[in-house]
Write a protein that binds this DNA or RNA. Structure first.
Lengths: 257, 257
DNA sequence: GAGTGGTCTAGACCACCTT
DNA sequence: AGGTGGTCTAGACCACTCA
């Protein structure tokens, strides 16, 4: 997929001369630097106060430009450390059952997983409904942090029915859970359901991701079912919004106007 | 629709414990009001200066809270008019070939389409590659604006090969193009490819959507192929980021760790 | 300890929408 | 014409990171 500037060129021809607000002029300069590769992924931008000197703008104006770029996923911040050029996003294809470790590796990146907690917890009414068990039935409750090339990109909370995967918590969960469920428990996923929506990263999730509370993120909710329609796992993934892209390529199911 | 006084009572009544930045406290109050249905979709929030009086915060702080909510898709702004509660997003299922008119209607909303331009334009090298024609070959080039319940949600630019749909531009394009291609030209889509990524809405795109330049958006690029692998249409959709959700539900193609 | 971003204030002027 | 958001300024103090 081409870069945003190329898209814009495609849509409306040669870009007009920038004559709008100052913060957009700064945004454009930085965005251009990134598009042309002069600002490589991971590179730290000059400090806000340095940019003030270079642009003779107030700090608020500088931050407006940076926030814009952050919303577009071009830069990200490390709390009280600085602003950095975002690495490329990984492409997620919900039509495949390839786990995180697989598709990240396939894209030439290095995945990492760290288990933050694993425990048994009684099913809430909502969860009981999803798993078709009685409320209060114990479920495995696993929280993990996952990274790409050393940068944390998501926090996930996975629920698994112990009836389908007894003793699951005794295993190391820092590898592929997808693979573990398949190889050790012979749980074949037949159907996958995925929902995505923007969200705010708050509280413990924001802490674990190392972002400021309120940072925009993307919530991916996945339910995997086996051939019998049982829920193999139910998973909430809180992503940094700049770390994931969606790509779907498939035969159509229906032809409607 | 809540009256202004009711809304403000709700927003500034007894507060629960709120540590942390002021702007997050305000964000939380508004977000809660929306979640509980006290602030209905389409309702206008009090003006920034009114919120200043009620919260004794500086205007910049108020705007910080509102921008956060905007990034989460909970509120949107109408330029120099005010801040409004966002309507629910429509759910988009890329595994179906249902057109915009269909899935919006199915979700109980009212779709609208307006053709902004239709013309023939020579294929750029990139487009020629996609359509497998020689660069410079004329293609239909259609720009449309689409709305849900009267609110503009996307601008799209569609490219169609005249060889597959001769005389296309003579038809009204304000209805379903999907249906037109199927019914009149018997073009059956066999494969669909979709890419999604965050983008900035700028220039003419932002103007046509009625948003400020730089507003974050979502770019959806769709390619539809017929059984022979020919590109039936190639489409860029620039969405308001709060207007669309992705939902996928399907049998898995592959089982990999 | 120096420097960074995070938060906040209190103004200002403007273009534009609304009535 | 009055009110709205859009943009910008020039400060301030704080919590935290980093060397």
């Amino acid at each position: 997929m081409a870069t945003p500037s190329t898209m814009e060129d495609f849509l409306f021809g040669p870009s007009e001369v920038a004559s709008g607000p100052q913060y957009l002029a700064l945004r454009n300069r930085i965005a251009e630097g990134i598009a042309r590769g002069r600002l490589a992924p991971g590179v730290r931008l000059p400090s806000e106060r340095q940019l003030q000197v270079n642009t003779s703008a107030a700090r608020g104006t500088i931050r407006e430009a940076l926030s814009q770029l952050e919303a577009e996923g071009l830069v990200y911040r490390r709390d009280r450390s600085g602003w950095y050029v975002s690495p490329p996003a990984v492409t997620y294809d919900p039509t495949r059952w390839a786990g995180f470790m697989t598709y990240v590796t396939e894209q030439g990146r290095t995945p990492g997983t760290e288990t933050l907690s694993k425990e048994m917890a009684p099913a809430s009414p909502a969860l009981a409904d999803i798993f078709r068990v009685s409320p209060g039935t114990p479920l495995y409750d696993i929280t993990r942090r996952r990274s790409i090339d050393g940068r944390t990109v998501l926090i996930e909370r996975i629920m698994v029915d112990p009836a389908l995967a007894p003793g699951l918590l005794a295993h190391s969960l820092d590898a592929s859970l997808t693979q573990l469920l398949a190889d050790h428990y012979h749980l074949a996923v037949a159907r996958n359901r995925i929902d995505m929506k923007p969200c705010a990263l708050t509280g413990a999730t924001a802490d674990a991701l190392g972002v400021n509370p309120g940072t925009p993120g993307l919530l991916v909710v996945r339910s995997s079912f086996d051939a019998a329609g049982r829920v193999v796992n139910y998973d909430h993934e809180y992503w940094r919004h700049d770390a994931i892209r969606v790509h779907v390529d498939l035969a159509v199911r229906e032809r409607t106007g």
